[in-house]
Design a protein around this nucleic acid. Structure first.
Lengths: 118, 118
DNA sequence: TGGTATAGTATACAAAAGGATACTAAGGGG
DNA sequence: CCCCTTAGTATCCTTTTGTATACTATACCA
C-alpha cells in the first residue's frame, strides 16, 4: 500500500466528501437508493433549497449521484446514488466507526477537565 | 452498524481531516512518528509558515498530534502523532484506496470526452 | 379567484478558509 | 557588526462556503 505523500490520493475522496451537507445526503441515498428533492429536504432539517441544490449538483458533477427529471407539474426530480457513488461507502463507514469511538474520547477529555476545575 | 442519518458520526472524522494540508501532515507523521517544524515545512512544498502552524494547532487541539518544545536557540519544536491520531489511519487508507481507483474513473471520463470531441 | 405544491433561480450578505508578506527573538559564525 | 537559523506572529487581502430571503412557473383544488 503506497501512501507516501507524493503518491497521496487521499484528497480525491476528501474533495468529494467535503461540504456541510454531503455526508448526510450520501447516507440517505445509500440507504434508500433514490429520493425526490422534497424528500431529501424534509429529511435534512436546517438545509436551504439553495444548499441542497448546490450540494446535489456537486455530487452529480462527480458522478456520485444521478438526477432524473420527470416532465410534470408540479415538477418531480429524483436523485439516485450511482454504482460509483456506492464505492464511497467503506470510507463513510470507517469515518462513522471512528466518530463513534471519538465520542468516548471527547467524553473522557471533558471529564478530566471537570475534575481539574473542581 | 448503525449509520442512520440521526446517529451519523461521520462529521466527527471529517471535521478533523478537513483542511488543505492536514492529510499530508498526517501521512508524514504516520510514516515518521516525529518531525520538526522545519522538516515538515520542507516536506510540504507550497505551504506557508502560517498555514503549517495553523493546521498543526488544529490537529493538536484534537489530540491527533503533540507538540514538544526544546528551549534552545534557534528554537526546536517536534511534532508527533498520538496513539489516538494513529487510529485515523484506516480512514486515510480507505480514502487513498478510493482515490487511486478514482483516478482511473476520471481517466475514462476524459477519454470519453476526447472521443466525443474528435 | 386565491391558495398549495414542487423544484428550483437570483440576489445580497456573512463567515470561514487560505495566501502573501513582513516582522520578531536570540544565539552562533564570519 | 551583520547575517543566518528556527519557529513562529501580525496584518491585510482574496477566495470559498454557507445563509437568508424573495421570486418563478404551472397544474390542481376548493
Amino acid at each position: 500500500m503506497e501512501m507516501q505523500p507524493e503518491l497521496c490520493r487521499v484528497e480525491d475522496a476528501l474533495g468529494i466528501l467535503v461540504g456541510k451537507w454531503k455526508p448526510i445526503i450520501l447516507l440517505i441515498l445509500l440507504q434508500n437508493g433514490t429520493k425526490r428533492f422534497s424528500d431529501l429536504k424534509r429529511s435534512i432539517p436546517g438545509i436551504t433549497q439553495k444548499m441542497l441544490t448546490n450540494q446535489l449538483r456537486e455530487l452529480e458533477e462527480e458522478d456520485i449521484i444521478t438526477r432524473k427529471v420527470y416532465p410534470q407539474v408540479p415538477p418531480k426530480v429524483e436523485y439516485s446514488i450511482t454504482e460509483y457513488g456506492k464505492s464511497l461507502e467503506p470510507i463513510l463507514v470507517a469515518m462513522h466507526e471512528w466518530g463513534t469511538a471519538h465520542t468516548l474520547h471527547k467524553m473522557k477529555k471533558s471529564q478530566q477537565t471537570l475534575f481539574r476545575i473542581e
